Computed example of a mutant assay.
Amino acid sequence: MKRRTLFLIFVALACACTGTLTAADLRAIPGDSVYRFDATLSDQSGTEFHLGERRGRPLLVAMFYTSCRYVCPLIIDSVKGVEHALNETEPAHLRFLLISLDPARDDTAALKSVFDKRKLDAAHWTLARTSESNVRTLAALLGVRYRALADGEFNHTSALVLLDREGRRIASSEALGATPDPKFMAAVRNALEISTK
């Protein structure tokens, strides 16, 4: 209970800092939703969007950076593993959002390069960047721990975080690889079933 209260206070403070949500927007979004922090991001095409615009469908979120040679490619493989485990109709209802931990270097061209190299589907996948302060807040809201290292690399957790259609955290997994964690996959399928009712 204490953890939930702290989360709600943190989200409220984060929203106050951005000032992008109206009072009506805030009333419509659940109190424990990550979307209360309506950060502005830009995608691999340079198109800006607000985090809250992802509301309405389940969203699988992870954090990565494009120059990472070890864990981040595995994070993308893990998200692809979830995508490939879905049946023919399920991918239409699930979106994938990977947010850069390194906005100083991960410009639109860097995101686009990885997007194209990994042959990601723009109908479902978004690689995004945002401000450094937003990265810190989003990482905290998603439960991703990271720190910049002296050599320009980042030490970070490999969490895949599942948000329901209202932006509430409902599951996470740090299992890496093309075969998804069965419990996490069950949570994905449950979220998809609920969202299509």
Rank of each mutant, 00 (worst) to 15 (best):
1 M>C: 05
2 K>P: 01
3 R>L: 09
5 T>V: 15
7 F>R: 13
8 L>V: 13
8 L>H: 12
9 I>W: 15
10 F>S: 10
10 F>H: 06
13 L>W: 15
16 A>L: 15
19 G>I: 07
20 T>Y: 09
20 T>M: 00
21 L>S: 11
22 T>D: 03
25 D>K: 07
30 P>Y: 12
33 S>I: 04
34 V>K: 00
35 Y>M: 05
35 Y>H: 12
37 F>Y: 15
42 S>P: 00
44 Q>Y: 05
45 S>R: 14
46 G>F: 03
50 H>V: 05
51 L>P: 01
52 G>P: 07
54 R>E: 14
60 L>T: 10
61 V>K: 04
66 T>V: 15
66 T>Y: 08
67 S>Y: 14
67 S>N: 11
69 R>I: 06
70 Y>F: 13
72 C>W: 13
72 C>M: 06
73 P>M: 04
78 S>W: 01
79 V>W: 01
79 V>T: 09
80 K>Q: 15
81 G>N: 07
81 G>Q: 08
82 V>A: 09
83 E>K: 10
84 H>Q: 14
84 H>M: 11
84 H>N: 14
89 T>L: 12
91 P>T: 13
91 P>Q: 08
91 P>G: 08
92 A>F: 07
93 H>I: 00
94 L>W: 09
94 L>G: 03
95 R>F: 03
95 R>L: 10
96 F>W: 08
97 L>I: 07
97 L>Q: 11
98 L>Y: 07
98 L>Q: 10
99 I>D: 09
100 S>N: 09
101 L>A: 08
105 R>C: 08
105 R>Y: 13
107 D>P: 00
108 T>C: 07
110 A>Q: 14
110 A>H: 12
112 K>Q: 14
113 S>L: 09
118 R>I: 06
118 R>N: 08
119 K>Q: 15
119 K>C: 01
120 L>Q: 11
122 A>C: 04
122 A>D: 15
123 A>K: 13
124 H>K: 10
125 W>E: 02
125 W>N: 01
126 T>W: 09
128 A>K: 05
129 R>P: 03
132 E>R: 02
133 S>T: 13
133 S>C: 04
133 S>A: 15
133 S>H: 03
135 V>L: 02
136 R>Y: 03
136 R>W: 02
137 T>R: 07
139 A>H: 02
141 L>Y: 02
143 G>L: 00
149 L>I: 02
150 A>Q: 12
150 A>K: 15
151 D>V: 01
156 H>L: 04
157 T>A: 13
158 S>W: 00
158 S>A: 15
158 S>D: 14
158 S>F: 01
160 L>E: 00
161 V>S: 04
162 L>W: 04
163 L>G: 01
166 E>G: 06
169 R>M: 05
172 S>Q: 11
180 P>I: 09
180 P>V: 10
181 D>Q: 03
185 M>G: 02
185 M>R: 01
187 A>P: 06
188 V>M: 06
190 N>L: 11
191 A>Y: 03
192 L>N: 12
192 L>M: 13
193 E>V: 00
195 S>M: 05
196 T>Y: 03
196 T>K: 12
197 K>W: 09
197 K>N: 11
